[in-house]
Write a protein that binds this DNA or RNA. Structure first.
Ligand code: FES
Ligand code: FES
Lengths: 140, 140
DNA sequence: GTAATACTTGACTATTTTAGTCGGGTATAT
DNA sequence: ATATACCCGACTAAAATAGTCAAGTATTAC
């Protein structure tokens, strides 16, 4: 089980932003330099964050992105969702009656994996952007 | 975040086995048929389970695999480990002093991802094969 | 003793996913 | 005007996944 870079970078970038005065637009270029994330990749990521109302954009010189809400109210689960990222531990389609084996009942392990999915989603549900900043006295 | 089929099948196959009288060898062919998992793939999986002392093999006619220990004592974490499967949510090498950004300190989000890793591993650590069988009255 | 069953092992491969890049935009402040 | 910075779709190299294949060996049943 691996976490992909897109989600990781998204959280990293947003965490970076929330260390600065809110309402001040922050350019992706700055984030890119500070966090060593490819600018072009960040653009892709932020487009999705914007579409999902997590940030808003300010165009033109001195433009950039601004957090749309208080970091306290931005849950990690929202960020993941914004990037179309899902925790998928079951092998079947949840909506379907069929199991991962193609048969008409769910397999022996279905319940287990479902439980795991809920368990992991819980983690994301209970973390806000703000929770990352408790250590305000860090350098990076 | 996705779970791969190898881990999923491994647990499924072992769960299948633990529903039958222990000490009776069960052939992969049977498991393959019952659980609709490719026989050739199962062979690959069981080789690793064997190397990691989770099952033992009995060759020849009426042979198959036998659980080496009580299902109560086989933790999911062991099964995953046997298949070289790791939960990896951090972007960096844990042992290294460097962060995922190549810099000399760990990044802003490192602690978060590390926490998540521990959290997920906990789930696997606290589940045994036996926990899957509480519903003994299932068909599949 | 020979056939059938079933494990053993390493190598190989198609497909999918990931982790980005590229090109050509548009809007805004100075 | 011009530089900055967001916007957007399409593209691609590389890695991971999900298997398959070939060529065995050991054991039991007849
Ligand atoms: S995981 Fe849902 S049926 Fe197997
Ligand atoms: S995840 Fe470890 S340094 Fe970024």
């Amino acid at each position: 089980m691996k976490l992909n870079t897109k989600s990781r970078y998204a959280v990293m970038a947003l965490a970076d932003m929330s260390k600065f005065p809110l309402n001040d637009p922050i350019s992706l270029r700055d984030i890119s330099l500070r966090q060593s994330i490819s600018l072009l990749y960040l653009e892709q990521i932020f487009l999705k964050l914007k579409k999902n109302d997590i940030v808003k954009s300010v165009r033109g010189t001195n433009g950039g992105y601004v957090l749309k809400r208080d970091p306290k109210s931005i849950k990690l689960s929202e960020i993941f969702q914004a990037l179309d990222q899902k925790v998928k531990t079951v092998g079947c389609k949840k909506e379907s009656k069929k199991g991962c084996n193609g048969k008409l009942a769910k397999c022996i392990t279905h319940e287990l994996w479902d439980e795991l999915e809920v368990y992991i989603n819980n983690f994301f549900e209970n973390k806000s952007l703000n929770d990352l900043l408790i250590n305000k006295n860090r350098i990076n």
